[in-house]
Amino acid sequence: MFDVGTAYLAAAGALLLVALGVGARALVRIFREARERSRKRREGELERYTKDPVYDRDPADPEADGAARSTCPQCGAENAAGFCYCRECAAPLGPN
């Protein structure tokens, strides 16, 4: 007769195989794109670091955003001016 447990295992197995197939194709595309970008960098067609198009800043220079910084009075860590609490010790930074 029809066993529900066997049908469940067959359906779960089929879904797993489909997910593995889709995931493998995506990973192959990512690998090929990374290999192509690496080749372009080696040949000088692509700069090593380029501006981030979303934030228009250089990812190699984290301080290049030009934002004011505030120093934590408790631990001395540098924080962005908009922070209310220290990113290192979670102490209140005071009014900004």
Score class of each variant (00 low, 15 high):
Pro73Ile: 12
Asn79Cys: 10
Gly21Val: 05
Asn96Gly: 08
Glu63Ala: 09
Tyr8Asn: 06
Leu16Tyr: 10
Val4Leu: 11
Lys40Ala: 14
Asp56Ser: 10
Cys72Asn: 02
Asp61Arg: 14
Phe2Tyr: 10
Ala91Pro: 04
Pro53Arg: 08
Leu46Met: 15
Arg25Asp: 12
Ala68Val: 01
Ala11Leu: 13
Asp52Phe: 12
Phe83Val: 04
Phe83Arg: 07
Phe83Ala: 13
Pro59Gly: 06
Ile30Gln: 06
Phe83Asp: 05
Glu36Cys: 00
Glu78Ala: 14
Leu93Ala: 03
Asn79Trp: 09
Tyr49Ala: 07
Asn96Trp: 00
Lys51Leu: 13
Ala7Pro: 00
Ser70Leu: 15
Gly13Ile: 03
Ala24Arg: 14
Met1Glu: 15
Glu43Tyr: 12
Ser70Ile: 14
Cys84Leu: 15
Arg25Cys: 05
Ala24Trp: 15
Ala7Ser: 05
Asn79Leu: 07
Leu27Ile: 08
Leu93Gln: 07
Arg39Trp: 10
Gly21Ser: 06
Phe2Pro: 05
Ala10Val: 00
Asn79Val: 13
Pro59Cys: 15
Thr71Gln: 08
Ala64Lys: 07
Leu15His: 10
Val22Gly: 09
Arg42Pro: 00
Asp58Asn: 03
Cys89Pro: 04
Cys72Gly: 02
Asp56Arg: 11
Leu27Thr: 01
Leu93Cys: 02
Leu20Trp: 01
Pro62Asp: 05
Glu78Met: 11
Thr50Met: 10
Met1Phe: 11
Arg39Ile: 12
Leu93Trp: 01
Leu93Gly: 02
Gly44Pro: 08
Arg69Cys: 08
Ala19Ser: 12
Asp52Gln: 10
Cys86Lys: 02
Ala77Glu: 11
Val28Gln: 14
Tyr85Asp: 04
Ala81Arg: 14
Glu47Lys: 14
Glu43His: 08
Cys84Gly: 12
Cys89Ile: 13
Ser38Asn: 07
Pro92Ser: 01
Arg29Lys: 11
Phe83Met: 12
Asn79Phe: 05
Ala64Ser: 14
Arg39Thr: 11
Asn96Tyr: 03
Ala12Leu: 02
Gly94Phe: 03
Gln74Asn: 05
Glu36Ile: 01
Ile30Glu: 11
Gly21Cys: 02
Ser38Ile: 09
Leu27Phe: 13
Ala34Val: 01
Pro95Ser: 01
Ala64Glu: 05
Ala60Trp: 14
Tyr49Ser: 12
Asp3Asn: 15
Glu45Leu: 15
Ala64Asp: 02
Lys40Ser: 11
Gly21Trp: 12
Pro59Thr: 01
Leu15Met: 06
Arg32Pro: 03
Leu20Thr: 00
Gly82Ala: 14
Phe31Val: 00
Ala26Gln: 15
Leu46Ala: 08
Tyr85Pro: 00
Ile30Asn: 06
Ala91Met: 04
Tyr85Gln: 02
Glu88Gly: 02
Gly66Tyr: 05
Ala12Thr: 07
Ala24Cys: 15
Pro73Glu: 15
Gly21Glu: 07
Val4Ile: 09
Gly5Cys: 02
Ala80Arg: 12
Gly23Gln: 07
Ser38His: 14
Arg42Ile: 13
Pro62Ser: 02
Cys86Met: 01
Thr50Cys: 00
Cys72His: 01
Ala26Met: 04
Leu15Trp: 04
Pro62Ala: 05
Val18Tyr: 09
Ser70Asp: 11
Asp58Lys: 01
Leu46Phe: 11
Glu63His: 00
Gly94Tyr: 03
Arg25Asn: 10
Arg25Glu: 11
Arg32Lys: 14
Pro62Cys: 08
Lys40Tyr: 02
Leu17Cys: 03
Asp65Asn: 13
Gln74Pro: 00
